[in-house]
């Protein structure tokens, strides 16, 4: 059982007020428990939680490089195994480190089948260095390297389906979660940590600074992402999708309107074709995962 009162991510870290990633780390550590060693890749979480000589972590924690968190975790896990010790190894990495930079090391570590849990906090761009696009940036989001303007509506490519790539490596447990559903997130991390073999949890963590919204809206926006079908919460056990979060469908506009990174879709003129394209992506998700709850007509 998850011990909700367990605090392994301490106050005093330097994340923005209302940071989704900080909340993701706090909740994930409640699920992982005290008997954990954390390997952190470079990223916002590493920077705001550990400006030397401070650290927000209350478990053993190591940072090496941007690209090699899963290689470092492999070594840690192999050494623990040799010493017959029982600590759980958890990787915390952002979407840039996961989707782009760490891809080779991740692929190697999952293929070798080390016993660790990889938690990706997905804030959909390189937020720490100033909002550059990553493989996780959604279609039409404006970032500093995919700016919206006269010639462009922002990021041209849809988000990479990372959970499927990990599942294709034969990972026994792959899950997506959102900070909008804290109990679900903690349970998924707990299950991943207690599953033997390389497991993966991808957590949707809105970034108030990078996406352009007020800090108090973080959870409301995370929830809207799930309700509009642009983020799907599901579990994949041995490659088979199960336990999908079902929702009452909302139009994608409600989600897009809340964030400055999509502002160009509404101002100066409403871009119906682009909004329809994003709606079509959400509709495909609804169809693929069968997540719509149909309300009975009275």
């Amino acid at each position: 059982m998850v011990d909700k009162s367990l605090e392994l991510f301490e106050c005093g870290h330097r994340a923005c007020g209302g940071c989704g990633a900080a909340l993701a780390a706090r909740l994930a550590m409640k699920g992982a428990g005290t008997n954990t060693i954390v390997v952190n890749s470079t990223g916002c979480m590493e920077v705001f939680s550990t400006p030397y000589p401070e650290t927000a972590w209350k478990v053993p924690w190591i940072h090496s490089l941007f690209e090699n968190a899963s290689a470092v975790a492999s070594g840690v896990e192999a050494s623990l195994k040799k010493q017959r010790r029982g600590e759980k190894v958890v990787i915390m990495a952002g979407d840039g480190a996961t989707f782009d930079i760490g891809m080779i090391c991740i692929s190697g570590a999952f293929e070798r089948g080390h016993d660790f849990t990889y938690i990706c906090y997905d804030n959909e761009a390189y937020m720490n260095t100033g909002i550059q696009r990553s493989g996780a940036t959604p279609y039409d989001a404006s970032t500093t390297t995919s700016p919206a303007g006269k010639c462009s509506f922002g990021n041209k490519r849809p988000k990479k389906d990372m959970p499927q790539i990990i599942a294709a490596h034969g990972a026994p447990y792959v899950a997506t979660a959102s900070i909008a559903y804290p109990a679900d997130l903690m349970q998924k991390v707990e299950r991943a940590v207690n599953t033997k073999g390389p497991c993966y949890v991808q957590v949707h963590a809105p970034c108030c600074t990078g996406w352009g919204f007020e800090g108090e809206q973080t959870l409301a926006i995370a929830k809207l992402a799930v309700e509009t079908g642009l983020w799907i919460n599901y579990e994949m056990v041995d490659g088979k999708v199960s336990k999908v979060k079902k929702v009452v469908k909302k139009p994608v506009e409600e989600y897009l309107k809340t964030q400055k990174r999509f502002r160009h879709l509404f101002k100066p003129a409403r871009q119906d074709a682009e909004i329809a394209a994003i709606q079509a992506m959400a509709d495909r998700n609804f169809e693929k995962y069968g997540i719509e709850i149909k309300l009975k007509k009275e």
Partner: peptide
């Protein structure tokens, strides 16, 4: 500032940073 071996820090040392002043 002298660096500790391995740049290590005590667990939860971030409590030294009183972020309440941001409010």
């Amino acid at each position: 500032m002298a660096l500790a071996v391995g740049c290590r820090a005590r667990p939860g040392k971030s409590r030294d940073n009183k972020t309440g002043s941001w409010r």
